[in-house]
Design a protein around this nucleic acid. Structure first.
Lengths: 220, 220
DNA sequence: CTCCGTTTGAAACTCCCGTTTGAAACGATC
DNA sequence: GATCGTTTCAAACGGGAGTTTCAAACGGAG
């Protein structure tokens, strides 16, 4: 009864996720999506209004699915040690971005949205990016200790985020550079392992000395 | 005389760099490019053949300009200490990706090409990505020492690369998250400073103990 | 059975944009 | 000054794709 649960509506969300993820918003065609969903061209208009509204629905739908499958806290209690919480955070993030299977569209859509924002960008900002950033900043404060200033917290958070996102953003590049690179579940575990170790090592050994620029000679 | 230096040809390369960088290949229209270049629609066909060949020329042109302005070795002698070479490498990379001004198109084009490869992708792989990866791997070997295996070298290289690229890929996101974030030259210096410190700290404190997974508890 | 709201279907409509064309302007060479 | 190669111009062509339309099928309620 509920038109939001209609059979063809769901098939459209699925097919559109697939097509938008692999082609991008502009290159994707409604005809292709409807054909894959076994629906008529007019179905998009009927169920969503137009192409852009369909896209927004797809974004929201698969974000929800991904978050449900890989929650950001990794099912870890909030009072677990910060180092473990970082590990779980990184791990779930990588799985959300790289994991294959049904909700895999999310990572690709997100990556596209980052480098080429569309009307759905604000949605992702408020429903995904901002909460994630907040969680990450809290984690960093715990790890860096009380003597870390805002700027350092932010920088370190961005360094961790950069490592995580890179495997999605630059996936095509990495694949050509290292043909044996695959995104199988156990490979992702290894990546999470590395990113966590690398980041924890960096955070704990970060040179705190004020004005100690010796490590980074300003070149000419 | 040389048709490669023709006045309107150069104006087209400039305007196309601007438009492709801010709109992407598909969204950009030849009409817009020609209008900004003060040229006729047919000029693209005449000087480059078609839209795709124009795009490839733009990619190559601005890659060359960026490399000329910010060489990957940062004008540092090849026998400089590895830590300094890493600093120079990171710094020049960030400037190439983020620096404003004329050759700024390069970074944006590159970022787009990463997340949505077109026909020009192979060009970037062979002329930019592979040489950079090789340089980076050499650096990592020097920094990690002889006991580092291939996998660790690769992982650490990707961690550094991820941090650098993130500021470009996720620029729009970072800008909304932290409105004071700007890509002015001195801000870029600070970013380079942070990325270098963070990475050097991580590399030098990276837990080497085989099988020592204690730092990264595998969460259920 | 009939009615009516919901959903699907095939075709047509429009607009946008890459590309082509053929003529005109220009400039150097002889 | 005539000629020829090069470059520019305005206009039109052709196809692709989002959107609209209206009729047909479906399915439950009275």
């Amino acid at each position: 009864m509920d038109p939001n649960q209609s059979e063809t509506r769901l098939r459209l969300l699925q097919a559109a996720g697939e097509v938008f993820a692999e082609q991008g918003f502009r290159k994707a065609t409604i005809r292709d999506i409807c054909s894959r969903a076994g629906a008529n061209i007019a179905a998009v208009n009927y169920h969503f209004g137009d192409k852009e509204k369909l896209y927004a629905s797809v974004l929201q739908h698969w974000l929800g699915e991904a978050m449900k499958k890989y929650p950001p806290d990794g099912n870890l209690p909030a009072d677990a040690p910060a180092r473990e919480r970082l590990g779980a955070f990184v791990r779930s993030w990588l799985f959300r971005m790289l994991g294959e299977g049904t909700p895999a569209w999310h990572g690709k859509l997100m990556a596209r949205e980052m480098s080429e924002p569309t009307a759905g960008f604000e949605l992702l900002m408020s429903e995904s990016v901002r909460p994630m950033a907040q969680r990450m900043n809290g984690l960093m404060k715990d790890l860096l200790g009380a003597d870390a200033d805002e700027r350092m917290v932010r920088n370190c958070a961005l360094s961790v985020a950069g490592q995580c996102c890179f495997y999605r953003h630059a996936h095509e590049m990495i694949r050509r550079l290292y043909p044996d690179h695959k995104n199988t579940p156990d490979q992702i575990e290894h990546l999470a392992d590395h990113v966590t170790r690398f980041s924890l090592a960096a955070i704990e050994a970060y040179p705190r000395g004020k004005k100690d620029r010796s490590a980074v000679p300003s070149i000419q």
